[in-house]
Nucleic acid binder design. Structure first.
Lengths: 190, 190, 190, 190
DNA sequence: GATGAATGAGCGTTCATTCAT
DNA sequence: GATGAATGAACGCTCATTCAT
């Protein structure tokens, strides 16, 4: 089992699905772009479903690792919020393909199942966002709304803005990112 | 032609795509659910593409018609904003399949093309939202951000919240809707 | 039963098949061009097969009637030959669609069956050509070859030339027609 | 790829189309007769169109190669003419399916396009027949007619006779072939 | 372990024919 | 008698997956 090959397959899958959607990513094309035989993919992933899900998990990990750099739950709520917001903005501006993939993934049978299971799982454990809002609520720093609704207020605009950025309709400069993060804070803060 | 049959086909398409995505809606299944023969669909729609696009346009019309009821550009910005926000919330809570369909549509080659052309087209003409934000900017009632970014701040949270509602994670009561609309206003207002 | 409608259907079939081949002539298009309902065709012809065959027979009759005008078996062989040759040339130059249809017909399962049955049937009875060659043989005016081979020598070049004319590669002027008919005579004459 | 499989597919296509026409040769039947899966055909040929065209080209090559054996433009016109004529006769008598296929091909949208382009292209270059007639005209050995008309006089009877032979109406013995070739020469010679 | 040729179920679509009006 | 909407079998083609090499 060559881990480089595994990575090549994932990269090819990422690119093809991010750029052309699930329709534009048949296994044969993934194999070709990854520089491996079609059958080889099945030595690393039991099926296309598994490949797609594992790729999502890997991206999820990378994103989490990135935005948690320098993050401390000991800081004030507002600061924590801006840290996470700007971190996400920065990450997706740097890796637009990751954003496109995650978006496509969530809008598919795969993502639906995951979303459901994740949300119904134990919160706080692996979800920095929810614990941030839970803390915010407890400290009476945020509006008294369901945690999920605070998530929507905080990240809904972000994803929308990143989409516009990737499509070329706006340019997410550091300055605009900061303004948007502030505006989102205005939305959630008490 | 029989307009009822046309409606049946559209309804079957709406349900299947909203519930199972484009992958889960082969023409054979649409025909079966609509209670017509497979070939019959092609008497009403030249191709699957056309069917999907026409269904989107029909939903788009219905949504627009619904939220523009009682809407007046003569009212204060904040009121106009809340009118449209709550209107959309209400519509999608009432017709969750429409929301799911529109969402799937935008996340597909069909929607991508549409999105691009619409955004690059002349704004304000057929887009009540953009003209609302343009007015808001002019009256210095809103943050000085690109119109598209104001859109993101206003509607990003909404779509996210509706998704959560449809998936059963939160319940969008009239009271919660009002709170969320207010919070969005906090996000865009100066 | 309206005989005009029957003629319209036949004319539409003739045009569509002559111009676009069997593939380009679905029943729906025939009906449309004939200005009748699709189901109406089936009141005049039991099936598409029947329609195609009856159209062939009708054209066959017309052609025969035309070239037999002024034809007399009492004239010398050479004269009879040139009469029929030039008659056919003239007919098909005047009605190129008929030629195209007959050609398409012969090159199809329909035509194959007919060809077989006609040729194996009693010769001389309804076939002026064969009796011409039989007479020619008897009078020792023609090469001693099977009657069918004489047919080939006489009419093979003609069909080929008419095809070239219809495709626009040559122009079958009366003068050229006469020359070709003479050349064909050179081929069959003793 | 397996060249045997490619050959099997071509052979199956040849047989089905030669015997039953294009209508009687769906891809599924070709696959079945070739002893391969339906999808396999598409590994060797991009589409049915391509398959049909490549098969024609292959047959065309074989035919040309066969009749050019021992052919020399240095020989007298008459000899050259008889060489080509008898060569074609012999080839098609030996490979009747090839004849049927080529005939079907020319009588179809595929062949129409080819015919047009070939004829309008530069003559003499890849067309031994036309250069033969051009030489014949120059040497005043042939009738003063358009080259295409000479082609018709020479090959029209041949194709007709071969058809009759394949259908079983006559038997093309070497002797009859020689007689027919001579008769055709009578048709074109000055 | 790696390959890629082979597979066949399933796709979107067409069209000869039927039958309620 | 005439219609044309409705049908569904059959088409050309794709692609996730398998397996002999």
């Amino acid at each position: 089992m060559n881990p480089e090959k595994r990575a090549d397959i994932m990269q090819a899958t990422l690119e093809l699905i991010a750029e052309h959607g699930f329709h534009g990513a048949p296994m044969s094309l993934i194999a070709e772009r990854a520089g491996v035989g079609a059958g080889t993919i099945y030595r690393y992933f039991a099926s296309k479903d598994v490949l797609i899900n594992e790729l999502f998990l890997e991206l999820d990990e990378k994103i989490k690792a990135q935005i948690l750099k320098g993050y401390s739950t000991a800081r004030p709520i507002r600061e924590r919020f801006l840290h996470l917001s700007c971190g996400l903005f920065g990450y997706f501006v740097e890796f637009p393909l990751h954003f496109r993939y995650v978006e496509q993934f969530h809008n598919s049978p795969y993502g639906a199942a995951r979303r459901r299971s994740k949300i119904l799982g134990e919160a706080g454990q692996d979800d920095v966002f929810k614990s941030l809002f839970a803390d915010g609520l407890q400290q009476r720093a945020m509006k008294e709304l369901p945690v999920l609704s605070l998530c929507s207020l905080a990240f809904g605009p972000m994803f929308s803005a990143i989409r516009d950025h990737i499509l070329g309709f706006i340019e997410l400069t550091p300055s605009l990112i900061a303004q948007l993060a502030e505006a989102c804070w205005d939305g959630v803060k008490r």
